[in-house]
Design a protein around this nucleic acid. Sequence first.
DNA 1: CGCTTAGTTGAACGGAGTCAATCCGCGTGG
DNA 2: CCACGCGGATTGACTCCGTTCAACTAAGCG
Lengths: 254, 254
Amino acid sequence: MSDSPLEARLSYHLALTFSEREALRWLERRERSYRAGEIILSEGQSTDTLFIVSSGWLHGSVKLPSGDRQIQRFYFVGDITTTLSLAWGYSAATLQAVSDVTLFEVPKNVFGRLFRSHPRLGALLFAVVTAEQVAMADRLTSMGRTDGVARIATLLLDIRSRLRVVDDLRGSSFELPLTQQDLGDAVGLTKTHVNRSLKALEATGLVERDGRLIRITHVEKLAELVNFTDRHGAIATDWLPPTGTPEPTDTAKQ
Amino acid sequence: MSDSPLEARLSYHLALTFSEREALRWLERRERSYRAGEIILSEGQSTDTLFIVSSGWLHGSVKLPSGDRQIQRFYFVGDITTTLSLAWGYSAATLQAVSDVTLFEVPKNVFGRLFRSHPRLGALLFAVVTAEQVAMADRLTSMGRTDGVARIATLLLDIRSRLRVVDDLRGSSFELPLTQQDLGDAVGLTKTHVNRSLKALEATGLVERDGRLIRITHVEKLAELVNFTDRHGAIATDWLPPTGTPEPTDTAKQ
DNA sequence: CGCTTAGTTGAACGGAGTCAATCCGCGTGG
DNA sequence: CCACGCGGATTGACTCCGTTCAACTAAGCG
């Protein structure tokens, strides 16, 4: 009965009330599917909807005048693409499907109402974005201060930990429907060097590859080697406000 | 009467109600000052407070096992350091004062209550963080896909546009109390190469330096040259929920 | 089966790092 | 008022990681 991705994501952090769960499901009404590789939204394109990932995964990227591309972030099941366009009337990046995906389209104003009807959810969503920001800061650190091998390793670990949450992920291997060019665009390397870095990673014995299948044989060891911290675990919720809405008379004080 | 930095920041996007303004001021009660260079909070240190920047600016950084440092982001007047510790019980980075600063300390749960008493502010804060995330994605792109000169130029443009908001910033020059090592730690370069990049920038005639004073003589031209977009302007607010709190009976629907 | 896209590999180049000396501004103590 | 000390800015020489350019191979597909 409850296959709501967003609900699942938030429930991971906190036990939701019936009312809250219902409100989340309310967001997930307009559904649409895309094929792997399809472009859902282009950079600069005007839009007033957000997307909640229902299945599959995708990425947001930008193109530079030089022709280079930077993949800024990946979106997995339960993620909301608020980054792209909530703050403006247009999208700050191109959203493209990595695998076949199903998305819920949420008008921004519907999303906005959620903050009013369910303040606790609003606060929780805020915290989730905050955690994402830290994850992005990690990537920044990775790109700014580590070499090719470490960048690739970090990316693989990160993707793995995201896929783990939803997909079955039996064993330690997972499918990576990304081109080496894509990997390079994500971590700031040339496809050529991505290839060499992958080879080097394999040589350490910590990672195995078979076509699009990646297997990290010693997750802990690799994580320590490249100083990786998983930012996708549970977040603190002790500071959240109580459920429901306060008395209408309760304005500022309290 | 209204020298509340957070209020000023949010008012920039939206006309606030009296009640909302009062609620924001309520956050800014515990004030504390630090000298330039002082460390306010260390990476990993446990804490349950957030900081609102009242005056001056600071940065958040992490240290790598290799000894390298990465400055992940700068905080200016009106910024809230939710990134650092809202989602966990400890800080994800080290917070250090760049200039002399004054900060308001806000307990996380007090911050949380704001979402309940003033949902619209909650949504607005959400949007602000979203915009910050896009700004950080820009930095990622800059570091992943551009050379030293462009990275430094982008950083200077970004800092300038942030300082512009609050400081007087008469003319086009501003003081940059950052070491070349700091600049390097921010954009992923060696201090040596930062120096060379700065020299190269000066050679273009678009930037002038005099000690710690930076002057960008042709902002537009430089911005276009390095493909810089200012993400700190006004954000869309048309999707925000109405002011105040809804009827207590109004739970999920609507 | 030919075509096209992605993965590999080699060789040479170059941006950025490393190492290290020198310069400079400035505060301090004498 | 001046010598000294120190952190930061500069600059030079050399090295190296990652890019470029360019084959060449493997894999999917109509």
